[in-house]
Simulated scan of single mutants.
Amino acid sequence: MATINPYLNFEGKTEEAFNFYKSVFGGEFTVIQRFKDMPDGDKMSVDDQNKIMHVSLPINGNVLMGTDTLESMGQKLNVGDNFSVSVNTDSEAESDQIFNALAVGGEIIMPLEKAFWGAYFGMLKDRFGIQWLVNFDYNEK
């Protein structure tokens, strides 16, 4: 059964925001990755390399996740739509079913594919303008 968690986007303030959320809710980060950790990350500016690519903070059985947007990668943050709904599935087949159903009448931003961090992952905006991240993590199964 799929789980759903919020995914927040910030303009260079993800680390500050998540340290704040950690002080409010407690707990520890289960993942914190910087852009320098991705393939070819060393080719980015030093400033971009040190920004947060992905962070996860478990909160009472849910997970608050986030990232920094990078203008150098063509990303633009618009306050008010700087979040996505992350769906974590139990299989590639469930990912395909959910992704394809949400994509009807919408816009595929990144097709489902095997990602370098060990997941089957895709991004889309549904016909109502809601951004979705669909993810099956091979490492958790």
Results as ranks from 00 to 15, higher is better:
Met73Gly: 03
Met53Trp: 03
Ser45Lys: 01
Phe35Ile: 02
Gln97Cys: 01
Lys141Glu: 07
Asn62Arg: 06
Asp48Ser: 15
Gln49His: 07
Thr14Asp: 05
Lys141Gly: 07
Ser23Ala: 13
Asn62Asp: 06
Glu140Trp: 04
Trp132Ala: 03
Glu11Asp: 15
Tyr7Cys: 02
Phe18Val: 10
Val31His: 03
Ser72Val: 04
Tyr120Lys: 07
Asp68Arg: 10
Pro39His: 07
Gly106Lys: 01
Thr67Tyr: 07
Ile52Arg: 07
Glu140Tyr: 05
Lys125Ser: 12
Pro39Gln: 02
Asp137Ala: 10
Phe116Ile: 05
Glu28Gln: 14
Ala17Val: 13
Asn9Val: 09
Asn135Phe: 02
Lys76Gly: 12
Met38Ser: 09
Leu57Asp: 08
Ser91Cys: 05
Asp42Lys: 14
Asp48Lys: 08
Gly41Asn: 11
Phe99Thr: 13
Phe121Asp: 09
Leu64Ala: 00
Asn100Cys: 08
Asn5His: 00
Asp42Ile: 00
Met65Glu: 00
Asn50Gly: 14
Asn19His: 15
Gly74His: 04
Phe25Pro: 11
Asn82Arg: 11
Ile108Trp: 06
Met73Phe: 10
Phe25Arg: 13
Phe121Thr: 06
Lys51Trp: 00
Glu140Gln: 11
Thr14Glu: 09
Asp90Met: 08
Arg34Tyr: 08
Lys36Gln: 13
Pro58Thr: 02
Ser45Leu: 07
Phe121Ile: 09
Lys51Pro: 03
Asn78Thr: 15
Ile59Glu: 08
Glu94Ser: 14
Tyr120Ile: 08
Ile59Thr: 12
Thr30Trp: 06
Met44Thr: 09
Met110Ile: 12
Asn19Lys: 15
Leu133Trp: 00
Lys51Asn: 05
Thr14Ala: 15
Lys51Met: 07
Ile4Glu: 02
Met1Asp: 04
Phe83Val: 11
Gln49Tyr: 00
Phe10Ile: 06
Pro58Gln: 03
Asp40Thr: 11
Pro6Asn: 04
Glu94Thr: 14
Phe35Lys: 02
Ile4His: 08
Thr30Tyr: 05
Asn5Ala: 03
Met123Leu: 12
Glu16Gly: 08
Asp90Asn: 13
Leu57Ser: 11
Gly26Tyr: 11
Pro58Val: 06
Gly106Ser: 00
Asp126Cys: 04
